[in-house]
Amino acid sequence: MMELVCPAGTPAALRAAVEAGAHAVYCGFADETNARNFPGLNFTPEDMAEAVTFAHARGAKVLVAINTFPRAGAEPLWHRALANAEAAGADAVILADIGLLAHAADRHPALRRHLSVQAAAANPDAINLYASAFGVRRVVLPRVLTVQEIAAINREIDVETEVFVFGGLCVMAEGRCSLSSYATGKSPNMNGVCSPASHVAYAEEGRDLAARLGGFTIHRTPKGAPAPYPTLCKGCFTSDGQTGHIFEDPVSLDATQLIPELAKAGVSALKIEGRQRSRAYVAQVVRAFRAAVEAQAAGRPMPETMLARLTEGQKATTGAYAKTWR
């Protein structure tokens, strides 16, 4: 069966994921070392140790995301996160930075290393370099590849691949995007905050809901229309008299129906996005996808997930997996 890798922003969400059928749960520490560094989220080292004990007792793995890029001079924070993940008994760490990968391979050789999507490794040459130089065993592929491209990559590499199947859809070269940094001065890649809440403001203006990031108005949502996340890549802008979503519509990924094709393409693990979401989201999405991977393993048709209400834009896309570019 394909491995189902599920998000947890809190210990309660981790328990919900495991009880709903997650094979593995990914989570991070409450600091800049992980790419979901939002207020009130994440794990202390003590939380992490308890979470690993809970998950292991129920046959699930815990993968610790330490997937931001360390600031020069502040490396000890990232090094401590690696040591704390190993001490907690984590099954793997998910890393993006080359320096941190080298440190992990050198100081924590027994700790399994996965390559974060933040590394944006999207071709066999890059992936094979990470595998040979740093002993990476699995790579999380960027959300910009078609199923055919994933199959072609898998033919030329020896490590496992993991792909996103549900949730928020980053359409940029992940780990390289500077849109949010430009608007807020805080970096998704180094501070772990894309569209940091401290820089987001909402205001009811007439019949519209205006969303601003760092003072820039990025959406005006009419009354009754679904509200999107305040991210620039899905902002609605006016240029040359035309108004529209320049980069991507505010929709979410749902690749349930592509799971059999992804399995044929050689994908080992399926990832659900949403460490910033509640335990209600985690429980419902994980349960739906556990049913889907079980159906795939048994050769049955894919079930309908009925999860649109939980998604940004309240509608789903298959993203780049079957993309017709404008």
Binding site: A225, R277, S278, A280, T311
Partner: peptide, 24 residues
């Protein structure tokens, strides 16, 4: 734990004003 806060925001059932980080 019956409903997701983000989903309630997407559907406009919940609205937020003021310090967004504090609400989060």
């Amino acid at each position: 734990g019956a409903e997701d806060g983000d989903a309630l925001f997407f559907s406009r059932d919940l609205t937020v004003e003021g310090d967004t980080a504090a609400v989060l």
